[in-house]
């Protein structure tokens, strides 16, 4: 549909300006991350990091690596658990039509609407009793609640599109239910697995409320808390804070570059019927 009339290019110009405005705070974060301490409070602020410094990023390397490692592990754990729980459920809801299935879908939809602070308080009370506050598995379990209902809905929507003939062919070939699921359904659902994994990782990586309530006092703190402590403690070193923010944004950037198609799919799947 792309036409290269002058009028179309004029629109591209407007589009560039609009995108630039929307992304300006992101640019500013990058700019500040390279700004020297003594220029930080310059008036007017420097629009470009002309006398750039890498001090902020050095601080990240020195102080934030453990936080980043924790976030990475928690993200992977969240992805694994989310897919393991949601893929079979999506298959059952989409293809097996179990009695009570609609009710379960309804509950999942409701579950998505529960505010995080309520979950956090409940988890805190439970974890305190069980003694799993400030542990990696505890945080992973809590973070999966951000993704599981969404994941089931995505899997159900995608797997409904698998032709029934394909599944029946597998049954004719003598495959059991489990084997059909494992060798037919999962491989053809690769796209939905990618979508779900990306979002589950991103949400657990970005999570602040569970981190601050359930992991705030221990050795396993994710990067969101790393930034939060920075803001609280050394209010002056904004290049270090923003450098950490830049590094913490990398997964989002990677996701957008590698999997833009899946991102739009994920955003719209929950809201729009095509």
């Amino acid at each position: 549909m792309t036409t290269s009339t002058p009028r179309a290019w004029w629109k591209t110009g407007v589009g560039l300006v609009l995108t630039g405005l929307m992304l300006f705070p992101v640019y500013w974060m990058i700019n500040v991350s390279f700004t020297r301490d003594q220029d930080m409070r310059a008036s007017p602020p420097h629009l470009f990091p002309t006398n750039g410094t890498l001090d902020g990023y050095r601080a990240v390397l020195d102080q934030q690596l453990p936080y980043l490692g924790t976030s990475f592990l928690v993200g992977l754990g969240t992805v694994a658990l989310t897919v393991a729980l949601a893929a079979p459920a999506g298959y059952a809801l989409a293809k097996l039509r179990p009695p009570g299935g609609p009710a379960l879908s309804f509950l999942l939809l409701i579950a998505q609407m529960i505010p995080g602070i309520i979950m956090a308080m409940g988890f805190y009370a439970i974890y305190l009793t069980l003694g799993v506050l400030n542990t990696l598995p505890g945080l992973i379990l809590a973070d999966t609640t951000l993704a599981v209902p969404f994941a089931v809905l995505i899997f159900t929507a995608f797997m409904s599109g698998i032709p029934d003939e394909l599944l029946q062919a597998a049954v004719v070939d003598g495959a059991g239910r489990l084997r059909t699921f494992w060798s037919v359904v999962l491989p053809v659902s690769r796209n939905s697995i990618v979508t779900v994994s990306l979002f589950a990782f991103l949400w657990s990586w970005s999570d602040f409320i569970f981190a601050s309530t359930l992991a705030g006092g221990g050795d396993h703190q994710p990067i969101t808390l790393g930034i939060y402590h920075y803001i609280g403690n050394n209010n002056q070193q904004w290049n270090a804070i923003m450098a950490t923010a830049v590094v913490a944004s990398i997964p989002a950037a990677v996701l957008l570059i590698l999997a833009q198609r899946y991102v739009s799919m994920g955003v719209t799947a929950g809201a729009v019927k095509d």
Binding site: P25, V26, M29, I223, I231, A252, V263
Partner: peptide, 18 residues
Amino acid sequence: ALILVPWLLPLIVSASTW
């Protein structure tokens, strides 16, 4: 696609930038 960036950033990143 680029305009999606603010939505994908961790909230703590957006909030501290603002």
